[in-house]
Amino acid sequence: MSMQFSVLASGSSGNAFYIETNKHSFLVDAGVSCKKIGELMEKIGRDPAKLDGILVTHEHSDHIKGLGVMARKYRLPIYANEKTWKAMDGMLGEVVTDQKFVFEVEAVKSFGSLDIESFGVSHDAAEPMFYIFRSEGKKLVLITDTGYVSDRMKGMIADADTYIFESNHDIEMLRMGRYPWNVKRRILSDVGHVSNEDAALAMSEVIGDRTKRIYLAHLSRDNNMKDLARMSVTQTLASRGIEVGSHVRLFDTDPYIPTDLAAV
């Protein structure tokens, strides 16, 4: 298998994503504690001590909560762009210089047969970016924490085999919910998070003939539900001529339970 992956944790309480090839394995983000990451990886039969590094998307705490401890405990290289490194200054504790690596936006790093490409997103962080993974003809895209999906993003992420795609909130639940207006406005803005409907509209423009799986990620604990996200995405895709079940399959992610290790 060219690539396998698991969404270890996904949601407003913390995010971590695992990907491997036959020779290399990485985390994207460490937004839960080091102890919890160890437990989640054990559930999928993997050992954090064997990781080759951690890729960082941005400096928000639900993406870097366990990063410093992971780096120190397992002596792991950390990859982030310059602005994110500066934004994380003082947030991680001591991380020695030889563990700090720069991975800029719209760059590619290769690790054996695994090519990792970064791309910018629209979020209220220093310079947020997510990743495209390619190995032996397979393509996996990880995209959350963006207020919208631009045409440039769509061009870069189009026609992947598998997507881990943000489906953060139901607009009516958010509008009617308990959050103060300034928080609601931030989530609904171009530097917030995409709704179920907007996520599905973007998906409909990037799904290709080889796309088989979409994992709905970073669901809001207060403003979404798994069943509602699946229903909204299914209906919107159907309105665009994409039938869930026959063309693509939808999968849930969870803040506390890792998805099964799966091939891309």
Rank of each mutant, 00 (worst) to 15 (best):
A9D: 13
D227A: 14
G93R: 00
D209Y: 11
N224H: 10
D52R: 06
K86S: 11
L228D: 09
M156I: 14
N196D: 08
V108Y: 07
E166Q: 14
E197D: 12
A202R: 04
N223A: 15
V95Q: 01
V183I: 10
L142P: 00
P255V: 04
N81T: 04
V141R: 04
A126R: 07
K212P: 01
T259A: 08
M3V: 01
V32C: 14
R185K: 13
M173P: 00
P128N: 08
M1L: 14
I132T: 15
S246M: 04
M41C: 05
K86F: 04
D254F: 13
S122N: 10
D190C: 13
F251C: 03
F133G: 07
G155F: 05
I257A: 14
A262Y: 05
D89E: 09
G192E: 12
H169E: 03
V244T: 01
S25V: 03
L250P: 04
M153K: 00
V7K: 04
H247G: 03
T162P: 01
G112N: 05
V141P: 06
T162V: 04
D170V: 05
K226T: 12
F111I: 06
R240F: 08
V108G: 11
H123F: 15
G208H: 03
Q235P: 02
I214F: 05
R213T: 13
K50N: 09
P128S: 13
S220Y: 01
S189G: 14
V264N: 02
Y256F: 14
S6Y: 00
K154N: 09
G66I: 02
M3C: 04
M203N: 04
R72M: 08
I19N: 04
E104G: 11
A263Q: 11
D260S: 15
D115T: 07
F103N: 08
S246F: 00
F111K: 04
Y131M: 12
P128D: 07
A49N: 15
G155Y: 02
S246R: 05
E127C: 15
H63E: 10
A49I: 13
M41N: 03
E106D: 15
I171W: 00
D209K: 08
N81C: 15
V264R: 00
S110N: 13
I171E: 15
K43P: 00
T253I: 01
Q235I: 03
P255S: 03
I132R: 12
D198P: 05
S13G: 11
S118F: 06
G11L: 02
S113H: 11
I242M: 05
I214D: 03
E20Q: 09
D260V: 10
T144I: 13
I187M: 10
A238M: 09
A199L: 02
V28H: 12
M203R: 00
R210D: 06
N223K: 02
E166M: 11
K100E: 09
D222P: 03
A229Y: 06
Y256E: 15
E39K: 09
K184S: 07
E94Q: 10
A238Q: 07
V244C: 02
G90Q: 00
A126I: 08
L228R: 09
A263I: 12
G31H: 06
R186W: 13
Y179S: 12
D222C: 10
M91R: 08
H24F: 08
F111N: 06
H60S: 15
V28K: 10
I171M: 13
L8E: 01
V69R: 07
H218F: 09
R210L: 02
G241K: 01
S110M: 07
